[in-house]
Simulated scan of single mutants.
Amino acid sequence: MNYEQFANGIPIPVFMVGKNGDFLFVNNSMIEMYGYNLKEFTTGAVDLLFSNKGEAEKFYDLIKVSLKTGQSGQYFGQNQKKNGETVDVDISWSVVTLETQKYVVGCVLNADLQKGAQPDAQNRLRESLMEIEERKEIEEELRNIHIRLRKATARLQGLSSIDHVTGLYNRVYLLSLLDEETKRVVEIKGKISLILIAIDYYEQYVEKFGIAITDQLTQYVAQTIQENLSSRDLAGRYTDGSFMVVLPDRDLAAAENFVKEVQNSVQNIKSTTDNQSIHITVSAGLTGNNFRVNKLKPDFAQRWMLQLVQSALNKAQKSGRNEMVVELA
């Protein structure tokens, strides 16, 4: 049951006032007592309830004090009904905060009501206000828990998508991004290029220098790849010694230039361990597809390109060091 349903079940007039002193809500008993409809109440009937301006200003001032301090308030005086009849009233209220905004919620007591009903109605109103406050606290705590959960999930997703050695995407996450890009490019009938870059003789470096030194070499290559990426390009660690680069909306000529830049930069990397100089190179396989020409389904297109780029890399590595082979789609 919401607040309005609860308030309409109370046999005395109940109202809610906003920060500007305007009625935001009145219950059915309030409407019956004064004779104004809901629209009249919410469009300026506060002034109409008072027989003179001074009493209206007094009521407004008391409301403003409560909204400022958060304290409950009370007004004794006369109100005027729509038919011109005056009535002695005892108006009491409390302040509630909903989503950082303060409101006054109160009730009107008068001599026309059955005396026995007034205390019970006031108690029910207090219970309603307590329920609102308790619900607000619970909702606030749930919001805080939700925010903390979202942050934790984001951190976990970040950790699960990044290769801890290179700082690039890991294979699983990169392939999921490739799947998204392939579907997008197929839909728009665009282009996409795929590159596999591998450190030449990677296993020999591991056997000769150990995994720690080889990880440093891997990091150097990863950094070089990262430096040559555009904002739309994607890169990740594919296997221990290889990397995949996805170039959305770029053709094979752009992919070849990318590989040349990486190969030239990697050749200049020098590392020394145990007085031995380490010189590394990389080889690459390339493929791509223009979906305006080759109209393939996304799933098949991705599998096909992965097979082609792996085949191209295998041929490049068999040819020697610092090689590049293109497999046309």
Rank of each mutant, 00 (worst) to 15 (best):
N2F: 11
A7F: 08
M16S: 09
M16A: 13
V26L: 09
E32Y: 07
E32D: 13
T42V: 07
G44E: 04
A45Y: 02
N52V: 13
G54T: 15
K58V: 05
K58E: 11
V65E: 14
Q71A: 15
S72M: 10
N79Q: 12
V89A: 02
T100I: 10
C107P: 00
L113E: 10
A117H: 07
P119N: 10
D120S: 11
R126E: 15
E127F: 07
L129A: 03
L129K: 04
M130I: 13
E131L: 14
I138W: 08
I147M: 11
R150W: 08
R155E: 15
L156Q: 09
L159Y: 12
L159A: 15
R171A: 13
R171P: 00
R171G: 05
V172E: 13
L178M: 13
E180A: 03
E181W: 02
E181V: 01
K183T: 01
K183P: 00
V186D: 01
E187D: 07
K189R: 15
I195Q: 01
L196C: 00
I197A: 06
A198V: 06
D200P: 04
Y201E: 12
Y202D: 02
V206I: 14
K208E: 10
K208F: 06
Y220R: 11
Q226H: 13
Q226S: 14
L234N: 01
A235S: 06
A235N: 00
A235R: 00
G236T: 01
G241L: 05
F243L: 04
V245D: 01
L252A: 06
A255V: 01
V259K: 08
Q263N: 07
I269M: 06
K270G: 09
T273F: 14
N275R: 09
I278Q: 02
G288I: 00
R292F: 09
K297D: 06
K297P: 02
D299S: 12
D299Y: 09
D299A: 12
S311Y: 03
K315I: 10
G320L: 10
E327K: 04
E327S: 11
L328Q: 12
A329G: 13
